[in-house]
Design a protein around this nucleic acid. Structure first.
Lengths: 256, 256
DNA sequence: TTCCGGCACCATGTATACATGATGCGCCGT
DNA sequence: ACGGCGCATCATGTATACATGGTGCCGGAA
């Protein structure tokens, strides 16, 4: 275990620790990309970065390489890395892509049949989501709902039984604004957002029911429409509530 | 420009040159994975590899990192890389995935509309594909057909106008057995295979027509079915012509 | 005989010095 | 004044030495 003192203006402002320097550099860079302090198109130079992080070039290269794998950096012609630019349309497309991939996962699950143990597990998750709702409308434990929603989508992707599809879903979900949880209501949201959650959960149940009924086309269509809700929220945010953009994880990096 | 002498049994057997050591190491490793000499699950150790390639560990790490990006290597827990295992079902799923992604690309193209210049270009490619057919049935210039088929699929993906979707299509196409050209008839194939090409080209035309007519659902379904032909060929190969497996690029790495 | 602890080795992680290639600027010549 | 050539500088590419941490084996003790 290493310890790490990052200096800014000669004064230690942060101390962090983790397994390796490369891992911490990766986390730090990812953070800076997500919060927008490293804008899209910015070229990353190894030497200044290494100096700033107080480590050598080697782990910096390692970190950048992994971030390229993650899709947050592009390799520049002639070497080096550039922060990937995400425009509004790219966010829309990434959400669309998630819908398509989740749709494929559930269609395959319906067509090929699913393991009964996995089915029991996802039903448990559905119940946990149900229990987030109180007796009154708008009475929702949003924090728990967010958590179990993430679990549900993970289990849904697993139901396909396809490692290839699962891997691609994980990939697109690593873009924070494309993940199933990205536009789910948070504490900071207007209470009215919570009123949309019952419909959300109804879609969850319909998807699982379609899978059990071996209705692949219906499952696929439902999953796509389910993802579409995220796009609706995105459009609402960008148009009328641009002040809330910062509260959606990773939306700050989007350029227009 | 470097030159590179790889030694085996102490004797120089190969000499290769390229821009960087890392690039050549990447090409060499990719080759070994594709032809099956590095089986899935094999762990790659930096030091022996570096010695064998006559370079230092640094470019070897760089090469492995890029191959992980490409999806041919997995990062092992606790560091290091392992050759990714592809089973028969993974090939099936990769082809399915390509169909889904190409379907999405053409659906988006139909729904959102396409640039007329791009449309003219792809029509030219369609004409070039037509010209590969001679007057007699089975009289096909398969080499040219392969080439223009690749161009066609590339242009088709571009029609979507979505960088996000295009990137994912490129990604899946890097798996050689999933690319649109993988199972297209080659010189070595039985002449009967050439009789399937007119139907193949008819699908190409139908997809473009659907896009022009803004029929997104039809375009998507056609593209999926078009990819499905590759799966049919795959099944045929594995079942009855396993001796031909080696002639399909990258199919040698598939384990059962 | 079995289990636990320590030691040794090996693979990766990290730092650093040096090499190389690209790029941009300035000078010189026309 | 303009254009081309060359040099200087900088960023990445590469090699290598050393650090670290995990793992497996061996020996001793219960």
């Amino acid at each position: 275990m290493y310890t790490w003192c990052r200096k800014r203006d000669g004064i230690t402002v942060e101390k962090s620790s983790s397994n390796t320097h490369a891992a911490r550099a990766m986390i730090e860079l990812r953070q800076r990309i997500f919060d927008g302090s490293l804008a899209g198109g910015t070229r990353l130079f190894e030497v200044p970065l290494a100096e700033e992080l107080g480590i050598s070039r080697t782990p910096v290269r390692e970190a950048m390489s992994r971030l390229a794998e993650e899709g947050l950096l592009d390799r520049a012609r002639g070497g080096g890395f550039v922060v990937r630019s995400f425009r509004y349309k790219d966010v829309v497309d990434a959400i669309e892509l998630r819908g398509v991939l989740e749709g494929t996962a559930v269609r395959l699950a319906a067509e090929r049949g699913v393991d009964s143990a996995a089915l029991i597990r996802i039903h448990k998750t559905l119940l946990r989501l149900d229990r987030c709702f109180g007796p009154e409308p708008g009475d929702v434990d949003v924090e728990s709902y967010r958590e179990f929603n993430g679990v549900f989508h993970e289990e849904l992707a697993t139901l396909s039984g396809s490692d290839v599809v699962l891997r691609e879903i994980d990939r697109v979900n690593r873009l924070p604004f494309a993940s199933p949880t990205a536009f789910l209501p948070d504490r900071g949201y207007h209470p009215n957002f919570r009123l949309t959650l019952p419909a959300n959960q109804a879609q969850h149940r319909a998807i699982v029911a379609a899978i059990e009924a071996r209705e692949g086309a219906r499952a696929e269509a439902l999953a796509r429409e389910h993802a579409r809700a995220a796009r609706t929220n995105l459009e609402y945010f960008m148009a009328e509530h641009s002040n809330l953009i910062g509260s959606v994880p990773g939306l700050a990096l989007v350029m227009n």
